[in-house]
Design a protein around this nucleic acid. Structure first.
Lengths: 139, 139
DNA sequence: AGATCAGGAGACCAGCATATCCCCTGAGTC
DNA sequence: GACTCAGGGGATATGCTGGTCTCCTGATCT
């Protein structure tokens, strides 16, 4: 898989929050909608909070929310939180050849380069707001 | 990473063998050319051998080789050995939404689909012979 | 036949990602 | 102020992947 399972979780959780920006959702609520294991989800949300992507509030009526201002951020920001650097998943030669470049491409270079481009576009063109607009609302 | 490190190793090792089809190379020789940890390499070559991609021979003058007939096989065969099913790395929704399809695409669906297509083409269009034609012969 | 070379096969180990548990803290309600 | 709700944070399992080690088997050379 190109991204970690944790990243899938992070994207999914933020998608749920972004469907109602500014509204607090308990992690329990997110767990029910997403099926992500509860305690692990809490940990991921904690990372997202420290990165400023979501906000947390304790106590009655609390939970997590994504503030309006965050809606325009690209989802690359989400992946960077979990993966460290999202793009490193896709750079470098598939063989590990240090000498592989445009002038001396390995047999997979063109394909891999193309995959990297689409991947980068996916991360940069898609915003958190876009995630919120899609709601499977799984029954 | 889209593929495992083991798959990188497998591709690299086969590339070295395919540069001189039919000729036996000791795993020690491959280790020197590739930098893959020796014992682990031996294990991977064993898997490739059981899958019929390379041939092994014991004793003096022995080693591994890729037979002429194997040169036309797609590299998908190599990845399938290590990954189980190479394409499963790239199918399914990035969110894990079971409901995500052409009619109800998630926000990343188009990108991910495109990546899958290029990936599939890479595996099917590239042959073991192609790998052999590229030799970095790192100094 | 005996030495040596090189693969074959299995147990074993380490690090990381995933997942779980428990206790603490702060914000509300009554 | 007492109670409860929900996040915060750290310690602790678990499983997989990558990597190491050891011993065995078969082929060739002398």
């Amino acid at each position: 898989m190109l991204i970690r399972r944790s990243s899938m979780y992070a994207l999914h959780a933020v998608a749920i929050l972004a469907a109602r920006p500014g509204v607090y959702h308990s992690s329990e609520e997110i767990r029910e909608l997403s099926g992500i294991p509860g305690n692990y989800l809490a940990k991921i949300l904690g990372h997202l909070r420290r990165a400023g992507i979501v906000e947390g509030r304790k106590g009655w009526g609390g939970g997590f929310r994504v503030p309006e201002e965050a809606l325009s951020r690209p989802i690359r920001d989400i992946l960077d939180v979990v993966e460290g650097d999202a793009m490193e998943a896709v750079d470098g030669c598939l063989f590990g050849f240090p000498s592989c470049d445009e002038e001396h491409p390995c047999p997979l270079h063109r394909y891999w380069e193309e995959i990297g481009k689409v991947y980068r576009r996916m991360l940069d063109e898609t915003t958190i707001g876009d995630l919120g607009r899609f709601q499977p609302r799984q029954p």
